[in-house]
Design a protein around this nucleic acid. Structure first.
Length: 653
RNA sequence: GCCGCGGUAGCUCAGUGGUAGAGCGCACCCUUGGUAAGGGUGAGGUCGAGAGUUCAAUUCUCUCUCGCGGCACCA
């Protein structure tokens, strides 16, 4: 006698087991038509499942968040079904729902090509039109394994083998085709609709492990309506326009070229942004009790052996032989016997060397040692991505040497600095994470317990929301991660904060404690921007190139209406430059419309138009980027206002 | 590094087994125009590199390289 509680609080008693369809029909005919699944005590289930006990039930319709997920999940099945019909011999593996869509991983000897997409999409549409009903069966584990193996579906068989014994082996049929699946699913293929599109093709390792065979992954997007699909595709196009690589070229900020792949050629305009940011963060660090240092770029491999990087990080290091190259044309360039040096991939070991000079007392701690250190890492070719992932980058790096009892305070101090800086540059959408102990790690569990607790404590005291990333910490300690999202939804880690008990030990850093004995300091690795490169890349995308005034490479263009005003324009520009602003003039023989258009496209925040009228009255006509209006004002008034406005946020305070 | 896709003028892209085209940009000339494209003329390309097939390759094939999208990696 199940009692079904509906979302409105009403209770419906039933004499026996009842299906979601039955409940929906009892509520209303129109709901029954739209019902595609149900939520039983919060869990999404197949609409045709029987409910035998009292439960809270909510009917799920297509146009709900759950409905959209179901559509996408079914679309993944649909893709698999279409592919298997079109390409016999293809094995299916997994096909989950992801943001905005789904993917399915296939095992097939011959490669798919994006040219196959049209054919597959057509087949998918046919299957939707066929309105194949969904049927669920629970199979015996061994029989299921045998069945899938006999079909040549070894991945499915492996999945079943690895399912916990407590779990049912559920098989969903869509017409004649079936797949092992946790479900739930739509009642039939027609509910999927046709607002889907196959997007891209990629290799992906079975179970995400590069030692396994590589599968072929087809990504798709699916929506409830063609309108939604179109809107999504438009969003992607818009996002492309915000791509920092594109804007970097259009705005003459930087470029990359193959002779220095992964390293950036900063043009004057791009480097202006860098310089402003560097000056800004240096002021913050100075004010926050950091001391700035500069350490060597190239260090002997013996040093990296001591630090542990040679063992753990060597494959990502650029190694340089310490040898005079042979100058004979025919002789080998290098003897192969030279000692090796390496470009630093990190600054931390060098900072320990500075710490170790002289004797440190507990009274000296904490020491906050900062460096705008340029690091090189030999990243895999496939990982390189514009400014976001490069092989040479400069961090706003610092290491805090402190006692264990200072960790919480230092963490809070950092979080405050971090929040100030990100607020100042306009990043608001940040995800905070604590990455905890990985399986392979150094140090005792007690030390890890303490370290993780201290980080959480700091977060709690700072009032920031965070999530835990289990097992994602560094081998030497837990870390805080700060994630930002780029134009197309990829997230990037920028700032970082890592606890390290290991490096001071390895490199024998010590201070004299109150008790007169030697103690190990704890090292906190931390960066606010992370790398200038990535941070600037994200800034460009965040602002779609329309940088805030203090960061804009060119803050103002003084554009003349006629050549008669040229001398005046030069004079005005000079006055603004004298006030510390970055100002250019546009004296070209072009119409003012043309100039305004061009500088607007170049995303210059301010355009000062000057003609005969302005020259006569020592005025300018100011137009702000994104505005159609302009306002005429006196030069002195504009100078006072804009000089203040163009200051970095900290200097305005 | 792995899988798929790509590389033609500064940029965006078209095109072809008989050694190339557009728009924008650039230079020059005319135009002195009041807030998102005034007109004209012109310059500009080893069609990513190498090899192969062919009478002939930018076009077809292979290798390499770089780029793009994923995957793996990101101590």
């Amino acid at each position: 006698m199940p009692q079904i509680t509906l979302p409105d609080g009403s209770i419906r008693p039933y004499d026996g087991p009842v299906t979601g369809t039955g409940i929906a029909e009892d509520i209303s005919k129109s709901l029954a038509k739209k019902a595609i699944a149900m939520k039983v005590d919060g869990e999404v289930r197949d609409i045709w499942d029987s409910i035998e006990k009292d439960a809270k039930v909510e009917i799920v319709t297509r146009d709900s968040a759950e409905g959209l997920d179901l559509v996408r999940h079914d679309a993944a099945h649909l893709l698999a079904q279409a592919v298997q019909e079109l390409f016999p011999g293809t094995q299916v593996t997994i096909g989950p729902v992801i943001e905005d869509g789904f993917y399915y991983d296939f095992a097939r000897k011959e490669p798919f090509s994006t040219e196959d997409f049209e054919k597959i999409e057509k087949k998918m549409a046919e299957l939707v039109d066929a309105d194949l009903p969904t049927k669920k069966e629970v199979w015996d584990r061994d029989e299921a394994i045998a069945k899938f193996e006999s079909m040549g579906e070894k991945y499915k068989a492996e999945l079943i083998r690895d399912l916990p014994g407590s779990e049912d082996i559920k098989v969903y049929h869509h017409g004649d085709w079936f797949d092992l699946c946790r479900g739930p699913h739509l009642p039939s293929t027609k509910h999927i609709g046709k607002s889907f599109k196959l997007m891209k093709l990629a290799g992906a390792y079975w179970r995400g492990d590069h030692r396994n065979e590589q599968l072929q992954r087809i990504y798709g997007t699916a929506w409830l309506s063609d309108k939604d699909l179109k809107a999504h595709l438009t969003r992607l196009e818009e996002a492309e326009k915000r791509d920092h690589r594109r804007l970097g070229r259009e705005m003459d900020l930087f470029h990359l070229q193959s002779e220095a792949q992964g390293s950036v050629f900063w043009h004057a305009k791009g480097f202006t942004i860098w310089r402003e940011l560097e000056a800004y963060i240096r002021r913050q660090l100075d004010a926050d009790g950091y001391e700035e240092v500069k350490t060597p770029q190239l260090l002997d491999s013996v040093f990296w052996q001591q630090s542990g990087h040679w063992a753990k990080f060597r494959e990502n290091m650029f190694v340089v032989p310490d040898e005079v190259p042979n100058t004979e044309d025919d002789a080998p360039l290098l003897s192969g016997k030279a000692d090796m040096m390496a470009l630093k991939p990190m600054n931390c070991p060098a900072h320990v060397q500075i710490f170790k000079q002289g004797i440190k007392s507990y009274r000296d701690l904490p020491i906050r040692m900062a460096e705008f250190g340029c690091c090189h890492r030999n990243e895999p070719h496939g990982a390189l991505h514009g400014l976001m992932r490069v092989r040479q980058f400069t961090q706003d790096d610092a290491h805090i040497f402190c006692r264990e009892d200072q960790i919480v305070d230092e963490t809070i101090r950092f979080l405050n600095l971090f929040a100030t800086v990100y607020g100042d540059v306009g990043f608001t959408d940040i995800t905070y994470k604590i990455a905890t102990r990985p399986e392979v790690r150094a140090g005792s569990d007690e030390a890890w317990d303490r370290a993780e607790q201290m980080l959480e404590e700091a977060f709690k005291q700072s009032g920031l929301e965070y999530e835990i990333l289990p097992g994602e910490g560094a081998f030497y300690g837990p870390k805080l991660e700060f994630h930002l999202t780029d134009a197309i939804g990829r997230t990037w880690q920028c700032g970082t904060f890592q606890l390290d008990y290991v490096l001071p030990e390895r490199l024998d850093a010590a201070y004299i404690g109150e008790d007169g004995n030697r103690h190990r300091p704890v090292m906190l690795h931390r960066a606010v921007f992370g790398s200038f490169e990535r941070f600037i890349g994200l800034l460009i995308e965040q602002y779609a190139g329309k940088m805030p005034l203090w960061l804009a490479p060119t803050q103002m263009v003084v554009a003349t209406v006629t050549t008669d005003a040229n001398d005046y324009a030069e004079k005005v520009a000079a006055e603004f430059r004298a006030a510390g602003m970055r100002v250019e003039t546009d004296l070209r023989n072009e119409k003012i419309n043309y100039k305004v258009r061009e500088h607007s496209h170049a995303k210059v925040p301010l355009i000062a138009v000057v003609g005969g009228r302005e020259a006569e009255e020592r005025k300018l006509s100011l137009r702000r980027l994104g505005s159609k209006d302009s306002s005429v004002m006196g030069v002195d008034e504009a100078l006072a206002e804009l000089k203040k406005e163009s200051l970095a946020p900290d200097l305005k305070r």
